[in-house]
């Protein structure tokens, strides 16, 4: 995809409208999110940044349909989460969202390809072509040679790439990554961010990564900053300024 194409804003795949989240009640009521409005656009990698306690993880949980907002509405690909119970949220999550976790969260008893197959199974994929899809997903993240390896035999970077392959399995429209580089050294962190950036180029997909790591800024198409439960900044990243470092990291 050319730079000019990426400069044109894609359609909003995920939209959060006035999201509020309150934990507890009475004297111990804590308002973690205070009317968050944001969009994740197709073909973009968005970084969500903010200090500890700013509400990043809570927002990520809501955007991933894991938590329900106290108030406000989340719409993913035209489907609203309003009124959905836990199973309804799980259903939407299954169909629309892929996750990448900081600690990889791979199943230690399953091989790399089986980890991807499990995600496909959860998403209701049939057995036909599933193995080919899982292997393709692993090939696409550069792990063709590690398909049958168990997680304990993989390096941190390889584990995170398996996790990305798992998130991609079933082609969800939203990929949410929680501190994807936090447990990795700079080289592997760069490789994982480059991969997420590539994933984000898909015109039918939006990628959001929560991060503290400023070295990842160069990969972002958009940066959203959250502080004290409010979005304080949301802007397109200046691609030109960072192109050099991005290319360097990718290579």
């Amino acid at each position: 995809m050319s730079k000019s194409t990426r400069d044109a804003e894609g359609r909003a795949i995920l939209e959060a409208r006035g999201i509020t989240k309150v934990f507890g009640s009475g004297d111990i009521e804590i308002k973690v999110l205070k009317g968050v409005n944001m969009q994740l656009r197709a073909g973009e990698l968005t970084l969500l940044m903010g200090p500890s306690g700013s509400g990043k993880t809570t927002l990520l949980s809501i955007l991933g349909c894991i938590l329900s907002p106290t108030d406000g509405e989340l719409v993913i690909n035209g489907s609203s989460t309003r009124g959905l119970n836990a199973e309804g949220l799980a259903d939407l999550r299954r169909k629309q969202v892929g996750f990448v976790f900081q600690s990889y969260n791979l199943f230690p008893t399953l091989t790399a390809v089986e980890n991807v197959l499990l995600a496909l199974d959860v998403r209701g994929s049939g057995a036909e072509n599933a193995h080919a899809q899982a292997e393709d997903a692993l090939k696409s993240v550069g792990l063709a040679h590690r398909i049958h390896a168990y997680p304990k035999k993989l390096s941190g970077g390889e584990k995170q790439r398996v996790a990305i392959a798992r998130a991609l399995a079933g082609s969800p429209s939203v990929i949410l990554a929680d501190e994807p580089t936090a447990a990795l050294d700079s080289e592997n962190g760069a490789a994982v961010m480059a991969l997420l950036s590539e994933v984000g180029k898909d015109p039918n997909r939006a990628v959001l990564a929560v991060t503290h790591d400023h070295r990842t800024l160069s990969y972002a198409d958009r940066i959203i900053v959250i502080e004290d439960g409010r979005i304080v900044d949301s802007r397109r990243n200046d691609g030109a300024a960072n192109e050099g470092s991005k290319s360097h990291a990718v290579n």
């Binding site: 998403r123 209701g124 049939g126 292997e135 393709d136 696409s140 082609s171 590539e198 990718v250």
Partner: peptide, 19 residues
């Protein structure tokens, strides 16, 4: 790192389930 495109195609989630 370049994301290699899938060759087998088909989206498990988006493709309609056959009976």
């Amino acid at each position: 790192m370049q994301l290699t495109r899938s060759t087998s195609g088909g989206s498990a989630a988006s493709s309609p389930a056959s009976g």
